[in-house]
């Protein structure tokens, strides 16, 4: 049992009881490698910052939101027009979601190109990839909640995609929608996923990801010499994080204030889908791929092939540390770099095409 000293102030009083100084000592000893690609480390922390913004604004929104088709739209309109700063909180939530996915993608590709997934950091990659898909899950489940025309039809089209998967397609659509059509059950189901299930899974995975980061420290790329001494996490690296968070906050506030989130007309399930409807930018690669492929390939509907491709690509992304055995042996693996460059080019081209042609 530690010796208790006579406290001099509130800080000492608190420190005697919760031992904050031991946490500070731990963070002072933790070092971030100093090398020429250290800049890319910042995006993990920035993703955490935007996730925190999502939690904070999401909690505020859920106070007024009503997850029922007859009142969801009205509750969102109420948030935007009657709740003090409600329009700003909703705009911050919407724009922060976009920035979060953007930052997570930059983090994903920087880890991929620097081969930071190589042994012994495979589990960090697996948990990171799961977190990326959870972020896309958040975006997908949150999109229906305002219950306006775009939200309704985008979710209707999106939940239709798995239908062509052999044997389990219909079942998957039914699970996503809570029935055959987008209705009350779908809204309740996606709402529960968005505010309870996905946040719990994400929080647990972020904790796991961070613990692994403590265990293995940040990766140093192959053939790169780290300079000594490293960057002490506290206070030196925390200042770098703080600058990136302030820059992120500036960007977020500018977007939310200059282009507040809009609310379309209330969804009418009996109306036909509006012309030129397209999903958010992070789903445009899939959207454009579905538009580009011919209706049938080898007598099989194109959706089946695209679904198959999505499953293969997802599995491939997940298994990168296993497939790239050269990187784990500390050797260069230019094939994986080339695959990454091709994937980036394809994504950018598909997104540009979707914006230019719809």
């Amino acid at each position: 049992m530690g010796e208790l000293k006579q406290g001099r102030g509130l800080g000492d009083w608190l420190n005697e009881r919760v031992r904050l100084s031991s946490l500070v000592d731990f963070l002072r000893q933790k070092e971030v490698p100093r090398q020429k690609h250290s800049f890319w480390y910042i995006f993990g922390g920035l993703a955490f910052f935007f996730f925190s913004i999502q939690v904070l604004t999401g909690v505020l929104l859920v106070i007024y939101y009503s997850p029922r088709p007859d009142s969801a739209y009205e509750s969102v309109r109420f948030i935007g027009s009657q709740v003090p700063f409600g329009w700003l909180i909703r705009s911050l939530h919407g724009w922060s979601a976009n920035l979060l996915i953007g930052v997570v993608l930059i983090h994903f590709f920087s880890v991929f190109f620097l081969k930071a997934y190589r042994r012994p950091r495979e589990m960090m990659w697996f948990s990171g990839v799961l977190l990326l898909f959870l972020m896309l899950g958040f975006a997908f489940t949150g999109f229906l909640l305002p219950w306006d025309t775009k939200a309704y039809f985008a979710t209707k089209i999106g939940t239709e995609i798995p239908r062509t998967i052999p044997l389990i397609g219909d079942w998957m659509v039914s699970i996503l929608r809570g029935g055959e059509y987008i209705a009350e059950e779908s809204l309740k189901r996606l709402f529960a996923l968005h505010v309870v299930i996905l946040p719990l899974l994400t929080s647990a995975l972020i904790l796991f990801h961070l613990i692994l980061n403590q265990v293995h420290a940040s990766s140093i790329p192959l053939r790169i010499e780290a300079r000594q001494p490293g960057i002490p996490f506290y206070p030196n690296y925390l200042f770098r994080d703080a600058i990136s968070w302030l820059v992120g906050l500036t960007l977020l506030l500018s977007l939310a204030l200059l282009w507040p989130l809009q609310l379309g007309l209330k969804a009418d399930p009996f109306a036909s889908a509006p012309v030129g409807i397209r999903p958010e930018w992070y789903f445009l690669t899939l959207f454009e791929t579905l538009r580009l492929v011919p209706a049938q390939i080898l007598g099989v509907a194109s959706e089946v092939w695209v679904n198959l491709a999505v499953m293969v690509v997802t599995g491939g992304i997940f298994l990168v540390p296993i497939l790239d055995r050269k990187a784990s042996r500390q050797q260069a693996s230019p094939i994986f770099t080339a695959i990454g460059v091709a994937a980036c080019l394809y994504m950018v081209t598909a997104i540009a095409l979707a914006y230019l042609t719809t």
Binding site: N236, I243, T250
Partner: peptide
């Protein structure tokens, strides 16, 4: 409003940056 916010955040970034430079010098990593 955006201009005021921009100035406030720019000052905050500058303060954090100069403090970071100080602690980097102390740690011998500048």
């Amino acid at each position: 409003m955006l201009v005021i916010l921009g100035v406030v955040i720019a000052v905050m970034i500058a303060l954090v940056y100069f403090r970071m430079k100080e602690v980097d010098e102390d740690a011998g990593i500048s």
